[in-house]
């Protein structure tokens, strides 16, 4: 049910995206002097195609119509029992994973990681890239995954050290150090 609603929302969002690019493309000029293709041609054409395709997809979802499968699927019918799998279908989530965490706990973890990521990136100008990402890594391993503190810190330190060696020392890439790192 959630997937169905998510699908509808995604198709609607894509239709809007297509419409926006169509409008933008027309604004840039679809054709220029002499009927030549102009700077807005590709965005307008691709935007319109996206709008139409997304609406078709939306209608198929609403009416629960089976859409035309890609060519391979049509060939498979009658040959094999099931359709070729996409990446997801293989990993149908069991309700409880090997650590006994249920769906809700895992969703909470996901949100924690995403929020931590955003916070970490926002902190880069303040505390520097490597420190900030090191903290993110330790947080993910210790707090989110509840791994052993000692091992997590060691893994973090080794990874940060290795990346420092490769990117900063060997490749000479100037990573931001933040206001605390001085200059």
């Amino acid at each position: 049910m959630i997937t169905r609603r998510a699908n509808l929302a995604a198709s609607a969002a894509l239709a809007l995206l297509g419409a926006a690019f169509l409008a933008g493309g027309i604004g840039y000029g679809v054709f220029i002097d002499g009927g030549l293709v102009g700077p807005g041609f590709l965005p307008a054409a691709a935007g319109m195609a996206l709008l139409v395709l997304a609406l078709v997809d939306l209608v198929q979802h609403v009416l629960r119509i089976e859409g035309t499968d890609a060519v391979d699927d049509a060939l498979y019918e009658g040959l094999v029992e099931d359709r070729p799998l996409t990446t997801d279908m293989l990993q149908t989530a069991p309700d409880v994973d090997i650590f006994g965490r249920d769906q809700r706990a895992r969703t909470r973890q996901l949100i924690m990681v995403v929020v931590a990521l955003i916070v970490a990136v926002a902190l880069v100008p303040l505390i520097g890239l490597l420190v900030s990402l090191g903290l993110l890594m330790a947080f993910a391993a210790i707090v989110v995954e509840r791994r052993s503190v000692v091992v997590s810190l060691i893994v973090t330190a080794v990874t940060v050290g290795f990346l420092y060696l490769v990117f900063v020392i060997v490749l000479g890439i100037p990573v931001p150090v933040g206001v605390l790192g001085g200059d």
């Binding site: 900063v168 020392i169 060997v170 490749l171 000479g172 890439i173 100037p174």
Partner: peptide
């Protein structure tokens, strides 16, 4: 040492561009 070398080997005085 690429990184270090590029920071130390200039001859034009104090200034040197940072990094690659």
């Amino acid at each position: 040492l690429t990184g270090c070398a590029s920071q130390n080997s200039q001859s034009e005085g104090e200034f040197a561009p940072s990094g690659n």
